[in-house]
Amino acid sequence: MAIDKDSSKRPANTAFKQQRLKAWEPILTPGPVIIAFIVIGIVFIPIGAAIINSSNKVLEHVIRYDDNPNCQLGQKCTINYTLPTEMESPVYLYYKLDNFYQNHRRYVKSRNDDQLRGIEVTDFSKLKDCEPLITTDGSEDVNKILVPCGLIANSVFNDSISLADASGNLINLTKKGIAWQSDIDKKFKNYPENGVGVINFSNFEDEDFIVWMRTAALPDFKKLYRIYHGQNGPLSGTIQIRIDNKYPVASFDGKKYVVLSTTSWIGGKNPFLGYAYIIVGIICFVQGVVFAIKHKISPRVLGSPKYLEWNK
């Protein structure tokens, strides 16, 4: 019995324990590497060209209005703008802000998502995220809770923008669909009309509100405002942009724009992606060719003892 016990201590001769599991050990042979580089080049360059072509087809017009002498803060104004080419529908109308830090840590955190889903939150420990805008006067009175609370919801962009044709007829713009569908479905629900707190605004399902509440990644950003679906044909000629300038940005050197844009399968106007593909493709292709030439002219034979250090 003792001998049997001892036998169980014998180290197992399994592949795992002897480190002999079957394994692939690549040695970077030139052929496959060269072919891979050339194939990557051949594939990437057309993709890059296609991206650039699509990006070039995107029409985008950026019109600043806050520096217009006729559009001072508090004024209503009309800006005439002549489109050089027709804009096929859909055309997206954006407002664009520069030097506005929606990604400031203090700003981003200042919201309560439960409240935005229509829940009457009265627990101040949960509302703490909304600092410094929790109640109207900073007290802990549930009846003075701001609805909605937080910095983001209390700084919603409130300029109004509309379009008219050269004759002064309003162009029909659609508001529906400017926000994420998942936001509309799940994240934002209207607050009860007679709910607790000081209700400044209860229509949380408003898509302008939802768009604003999705904070931007960078300090210069644009947000989708309206969509033109082409009921009256493509936009062309001179259009009137009617603006009610109410949102102050001058104190922090901000800028305001209206942007008219179309899109493509790859998104908005941005050639960088295409250039990246072309450059990488060219680099890979050139490398492949250079390696192929090197391999043709003076190949290094794999596994040749000539290159061993102790044979030199």
Binding site: Y92, Q102, G177, F221, L224, I227, T263, I266, G268
Partner: peptide
């Protein structure tokens, strides 16, 4: 700007 997708919508942070 911000990321615009094929439906013209904005991405966000």
């Amino acid at each position: 700007g911000d990321m615009v997708n094929q439906w013209g919508r904005i991405g966000g942070k």
